[in-house]
């Protein structure tokens, strides 16, 4: 699926664009969202510029209720501070706002995500002799624990969607029902994974991620091949609605503004 088109055949989009649009639709106008950098930041700002104009976006640098005109390269770009309602110290950010339970959704990415939506951003391979040393946890371990719900987005491949993560940086559903509670958590954890192929949601009984919606033009075999476990499909499998012309226009404008801003140096 390099390109897709809607029923009318006049709106082309890339898999990445569809992923961002699908992720943005998971956010509501009344959400208070703790935003990870990269793909989550794109989806959150697209939501704010389309169907969720009042959404509160919070970045771990302490910028509360920010409305960036261009996508930040880092979680602490000046753009975030200049367009925020207020900027608080990082200690306050994590202790009052996140740990205090005021954030409805955390939006994360990850190098590895497993069948129970546990996230690895620490190492590929053994911790003491890693094949690849990844950046680490950052804010994610507590975002995954303290936000009421967690959304995850990543490109779909068998290297990324794995049976078991090499290292649990941020807890999803552990190894099944009861694991979050046993770890002392009362929050819901991951409720949705958005990839460039499909949507996955935890099975209410087993907590294993199940494909609930295929993106337009994607078939089951593609998803099976690109998933590191024997992935199951929901009985009532949906088709993700394609991006609307408006969603695509807003997203492309956002990208164009961002590229122009970051090229300046």
């Amino acid at each position: 699926m390099s390109k897709g088109s809607d029923e009318g055949g006049h709106v082309d989009f890339t898999p990445d664009e569809l992923m961002t649009v699908a992720a943005s639709r998971a956010l509501r106008n009344d959400d208070v969202c703790f935003v990870g950098i990269g793909a989550p930041s794109e989806a959150c700002n697209l939501a704010r510029l389309t169907h969720a104009p009042d959404i509160v976006l919070i970045y771990e640098s302490g910028t509360l209720q920010t409305r960036p005109d261009v996508l930040p390269l880092s979680i602490g770009d000046g753009e975030l501070c200049e367009t925020a309602l207020t900027t608080v110290p990082v200690v306050e950010m994590f202790q009052y706002w996140l740990q205090g339970g005021r954030i409805s959704k955390g939006f994360l990415g990850g190098a590895q995500i497993d069948r129970f939506a546990n996230i690895n951003t620490t190492v590929i391979g053994d911790y003491d002799a890693p094949k690849v040393r990844l950046p680490g946890g950052g804010g994610a371990p507590e975002i995954a624990g303290s936000c009421h719900e967690v959304l995850i987005t990543a490109r779909h491949s068998a290297r990324t969607l794995v049976d078991t993560v090499d290292f649990v940086t941020s807890l999803g559903h552990g190894s099944g029902p009861g694991d979050r509670e046993a770890a002392g958590l009362t929050t819901a954890g991951p409720v949705l994974v958005v990839t460039d192929l499909c949507l996955l949601e935890p099975d209410p009984e087993t907590r294993e991620l199940v494909v609930t919606s295929l993106h337009p033009g994607v078939d089951r075999d593609q998803v099976v091949t690109a998933t590191g476990w024997e992935v199951r499909f929901a009985d009532e499998l949906a088709t993700t609605p394609p991006p609307t012309a408006e969603e695509l226009q807003v997203l492309r404008d956002l990208h164009a503004r961002t590229e122009q801003a970051h090229a300046g140096g």
Partner: peptide, 25 residues
């Protein structure tokens, strides 16, 4: 890390947080 700086500034020996739940860290 933020809590550890906070504790250091406050002259405390350690920091507490509701954190690292289920993490291999």
């Amino acid at each position: 890390m933020a809590a550890a700086y906070h504790a250091g500034a406050a002259g405390l020996p350690f920091a507490t947080l509701r954190g690292y739940a289920g993490s291999d860290l």
